[in-house]
């Protein structure tokens, strides 16, 4: 795919077209349009129960699309299973890390590479993860559950990187972390992004997210109410009042 029209269109990595999802009779997402281009970092903001997590789950395939379409790397993706989407290049850092606490750090990383066969590539990626997160390498044979929240976050990110994804989805990475750690984590996210991996971050902490993202979307009760470059959103009056707080 990727037909060239007169206006040269960039190839889209992920696209949601008029996506609507339901939980039984209740509509959670309504007519959501979103795009992510390769190499970008996009954040999704919104308050509680705005549908942020559901959007992530829909992209992943844990929640099914009721209406609308989703495309990933040019292919129609909303009918694929979660495993198939992971295979095609998605990876996720779930809310609250969700690392396997009874498995060692090494095994957690190996689980990230579950769908891969190339031993050499896996080793390369693991070395990269060690480079980014030396602490993870230190604790390689410890059980995941013995690490602190921040360390677990690093492990979760490393695990996501192990599948050599094209797109990393992150669900509230700042939750439960000390502010200093939050900065660290987002720095690393930026680093990863600069390597060419697209990042889609769902965040409550709008300030931090917008400070490093390229673009952002704002959800309210399942609808996209604002979108645009991060800088614009930072200066937007409505945003300031609702999410960024008066200075």
């Amino acid at each position: 795919m990727g037909e060239r029209s007169n206006v040269a269109e960039r190839e889209k990595l992920l696209e949601l077209k008029k996506v609507t999802t339901h939980y039984g009779p209740i509509r959670v997402l309504t007519d959501v349009d979103m795009v992510i281009y390769p190499g970008e970092m996009v954040c999704l903001l919104g308050g509680n129960a705005s549908g942020k997590s559901t959007t992530l789950k829909t992209i992943l395939g844990i929640v099914k699309v009721s209406e609308g379409e989703m495309y990933f790397r040019g292919e129609r993706a909303d009918q694929l299973s979660t495993a198939e989407r992971i295979e095609r290049g998605m990876a996720v850092v779930p809310e609250n890390r969700r690392i396997f606490s009874k498995m060692t750090v090494l095994e957690n990383l190996e689980m990230g590479a579950y769908l891969r066969d190339d031993k050499k590539g896996i080793k390369e990626d693991m070395d990269y993860v060690f480079e980014l997160f030396p602490r993870v390498k230190e604790r390689l044979h410890q059980k995941g559950g013995t690490m602190s929240g921040g360390e677990q976050q690093m492990l979760a990110m490393g695990r996501a990187l192990m599948s050599r994804p094209k797109l990393i989805l992150m669900d509230e990475p700042s939750m439960g972390l000390a502010p200093l750690f939050v900065e660290r984590i987002f720095e690393i996210i930026k680093q990863v992004n600069e390597r060419g991996i697209s990042v889609f971050v769902v965040e409550q902490n709008a300030n931090v997210a917008l400070s490093i993202a390229d673009r952002g979307y704002v959800l309210q009760t399942g609808e996209v109410v604002l979108s645009g470059p991060a800088k614009e959103l930072l200066n937007n009056e409505a945003m300031k009042k609702a999410y960024l707080g008066e200075v």
Binding site: H22, Y23, G24, P25, I26, V28, S53, I62, V63, K64
Partner: peptide, 22 residues
């Protein structure tokens, strides 16, 4: 019925929402 369903927030009550798992 509809209002009850909306009130039982699907994010919190997995058993209340319809099967959303694949």
């Amino acid at each position: 019925r509809k209002q009850d369903a909306w009130l039982s927030n699907p994010e919190l009550n997995r058993a209340g929402g319809a099967a959303a798992v694949d």
